[in-house]
């Protein structure tokens, strides 16, 4: 009886682990096949692995290297601009006393309620008029609409953890507020800033709706470019798998690096009230 229970539990475990890991593992396996092996029926679990698909998508004609670069520019650009704006704002919200503080905090949360499609329609009109469609500045600017509230709230939670004595000691020494923030406070929240950077980058890398509307020949992130490999007539299975794996790789690495902070990163702001995409 006890034996049966153990076997049953083990079976449930394996089924669930498989259900969640399989689609990802299967993509990785397919990316290591030749197109012929990928198309084989019944599906082949055992095959001779090859890196041909990666070589083709990276260095063949229609290489996705420019698209990976495009994703990288968008994500890094968004991260830098977001952090420059969010760090001071989060500090003010977490530590300083001023009128309208509650309202400001609420406003930052409330901006996340807006459906992205409601932001992109007007933005598209404006960017079209000033010729910013298919430009990095256009896409990075609109990415602030989701990355900034997220980063501010995540950082607030880290700033709130620093003891007040640190600042007071610095003021008594005659240091200016700005200097104190830069020299004393920011080094204290290095860890929190690193976590925020990871999540802002990740969200920017994964964004899709804005990218679909605003991308063109110059700005073409890998999530958009992967559509080149599927068409009604013919899907290039191994290559598509390779592109998917390349698109997944950076975020999977970041996710595993930030493993301990994932729950916090995913639920930020929720404690105080809002919801995040």
């Amino acid at each position: 009886m006890k034996r049966l229970r153990t076997i049953l539990l083990l079976a449930i475990t394996v089924v669930f682990l498989l259900a969640w890991a399989f689609p990802i593992v299967w993509s990785v396996l397919n990316s290591l096949k030749t197109d012929k092996d990928a198309l084989a029926y019944p599906p082949k679990l055992l095959f001779e692995p090859t890196l041909d698909a990666y070589r083709d998508v990276l260095f063949g004609s229609g290489s996705i290297l420019p698209n990976l670069l495009s994703s990288m520019i968008i994500s890094l650009g968004t991260t830098i601009v977001t952090m420059v704006l969010a760090i001071p704002a989060a500090y003010a919200l977490a530590r300083l006393r001023f009128r309208g503080k509650k309202f400001t905090g609420f406003y930052v949360l409330a901006t996340q309620m807006l459906p992205p499609v409601g932001i992109i329609i007007p933005y598209y009109i404006v960017l079209r008029n000033i010729g910013w469609i298919d430009t990095y500045q256009g896409i990075i600017l609109i990415y602030l609409s989701f990355s900034l509230p997220f980063a501010i709230w995540l950082l607030v939670s880290y700033f709130e953890d620093i003891p007040y004595e640190m600042e007071e000691a610095a003021y008594l020494d005659g240091a200016s507020r700005l200097r104190t923030l830069w020299r004393i406070i920011i080094p204290q929240v290095r860890g929190g800033i690193a976590v925020t950077v990871v999540f802002v980058f990740l969200n920017a890398w994964n964004e899709f709706l804005f990218a679909v509307v605003l991308s063109g020949n110059t700005v073409r992130p890998v999530t958009i470019a992967m559509f080149n490999f599927v068409s009604v007539e013919q899907t290039l299975w191994a290559k598509l798998a390779a592109v998917s794996v390349l698109a997944m790789l950076p975020v999977v690495i970041l996710g595993i690096v930030a493993q301990k902070h994932i729950v916090k990163g995913l639920t930020v702001g929720a404690v105080k009230g809002g919801g995040r995409r």
Partner: peptide, 23 residues
């Protein structure tokens, strides 16, 4: 479980959709 649970949530929904649609 903890490691595998991280994978789906960090992926781009677009890539997830593509994998399901095809493979």
């Amino acid at each position: 479980f903890r490691v595998i649970a991280i994978l789906p949530v960090v992926l781009s929904p677009a890539v997830v959709g593509m994998i399901w649609r095809t493979f």
